[in-house]
Amino acid sequence: MAQHPTGHSHDAHAHGDSHESHGSLKSYVIGFVLSLVLTIIPLVAVLNDMVEGTAARVLLLVTAVLQFVVQLFFFMHLREEKKPRWNLMALILGLVIVLTIVIGSIWIMTYNKVA
């Protein structure tokens, strides 16, 4: 327990520090403003029926994903992780599985609709 996790002790240090040395007020403000903009665009466009149907769905999903990316970079400081990027790898794998669950379920259940 107490031993130093030496396999990657320098990484561990670097990682622990990343939240201290980085993440300036500027990055939080930029992130916040971008999030607000990315929330307002779909609200205005969809609720006023400026886009409809598939186009609206695409717009909604794209802005949502962009906002996710914004939060990852400006709030969670994912970019500043030092190598090896375990957190990033875990996240990507997790997202692949999430997409598999959602898309796979939709695909499989298309043929098994009951209402």
């Binding site: 327990m1 561990a12 957190n87």
Partner: peptide, 10 residues
Amino acid sequence: HHDLEALRQM
């Protein structure tokens, strides 16, 4: 125990 805290964050 700085390393330890990094482990927990991970």
